[in-house]
Design a binder for these strands. Structure first.
Lengths: 212, 212
DNA sequence: TAGATTGTTAATCGATTAACAATC
DNA sequence: TAGATTGTTAATCGATTAACAATC
């Protein structure tokens, strides 16, 4: 979870990218890195890199040497809340839902999927990728007992709105929607649409720009 | 595929959102909609809505009535290239890869996954969600024969860089990376990282902002 | 007609980039 | 020392929002 307020969305979105890049360099055995090198490898502006890093870390870079990799990685992980676990439930234990239950990134990101919920009795009571699959009747109890703040929606698009309302009724305050479906929700609910169409549009534009 | 050049990334990312919302309203039987209503439901500024729509469509809104839903939907779909199919290959027919092969959104978005590639002989030659799974040896041939421009990476992060290089060697020019791994690539390759960590950070910030 | 809504121009806001003195 | 690199201030760029005449 993010703990400081004064951060632009643009910077926030870039931080996980720095983290992956820096982790890579640390694995290769480097101990320091300069903003100019980061900028070149990530196709960014070096001043932007320094400003972004300064938002997440108070560690000073050393002229000539650059920044300490381990300190930088630690501070960005702290800033992004990777060391502070948040609980989530997942709605819809289909193919995409099952894949997310086993997604190797989430544990690193501080996201813990407590349980999945599915209306199919054949999977209820079973475990998928180590996560229990339960009937929706148990949602409210699980949310309360585990202080779950995030609901992940991986049902078919025709059920997404209904499932979102069920989540809100159960006490969820943040929704991560993987269904290709617009959700009409009250303003006090945080919503992030995992937008495959938008991602594809961005990739297409990059391809187009390379040709023109 | 996107066909016009002068568009900001901010607008581009919002367009698929409009599309989902407008499609919903059309399904409900509406024929016209005003930018003020769109703005309210999507938590945006009405002027921004009008400017965004004007980028994708030349259809004029009518004072008092608003915009024609069917015309708007048609134009945005055209603009985003949903009617112009692009071919892709998918690397790694594991859980996430299999889920993407069956993702209901892609066909609507104009993305056609031609085939998947996996090193596991047990799945080679089989079909997953209707898509053939092949050995990597056939990648170059498939890319050339089908004019494939996009490669989707759903292998484990430790193989992502290597797979990206294989894709580039086969002639791919755009990469959609679902592995939580930084890729070091030449500038002439278009890359879109599907960044779960960034999405989670955005959702966390929204939750945080609601509390403060 | 009266009023809601559009499209556009101007003003504001915020993010990126350039310039540069400080420093290891 | 000389030079690469940092952190910060100022300038630029672009996106968002406000204001408002035109119009159905």
């Amino acid at each position: 979870m993010v703990h400081r307020a004064n951060i632009s969305q643009a910077t926030l979105v870039r931080l996980p990218g720095y983290l992956r890049y820096l982790t890579d360099r640390a694995k290769e055995g480097y101990e320091h890195i300069s903003s100019t090198v980061i900028a070149k490898d990530m196709h960014l502006n070096p001043v932007q890199v320094r400003k972004d890093l300064a938002v997440a870390s108070r560690v000073a870079g050393k002229p000539k040497a650059g920044f300490s990799l381990t300190e930088l990685i630690r501070d960005i992980e702290d800033f992004l809340g990777f060391h502070h676990v948040a609980n989530a439930v997942l709605m819809g234990a289909g193919q995409l839902g099952s894949a997310l239950m086993g997604y190797e990134g989430f544990t690193n990101y501080g996201l813990n999927i407590v349980a999945a919920f599915d209306k199919n009795p054949a999977v209820q009571g079973k475990k998928v990728n180590g996560k229990p699959v339960l009937p929706v009747e148990e949602l409210s109890r699980v949310v309360k007992e585990n202080h779950v703040s995030i609901g992940i929606i991986t049902v078919g698009k025709e059920h997404a709105q209904e499932v979102a309302e069920t989540l809100i009724a159960a006490g969820i305050r943040g929704i991560w929607n993987f269904a290709p479906q617009h959700l009409l929700l009250p303003a006090e609910i945080a919503i992030k649409h995992e937008d495959m169409a938008a991602s594809l549009a961005i990739l297409s534009k990059k391809l187009f720009d390379l040709d023109n």
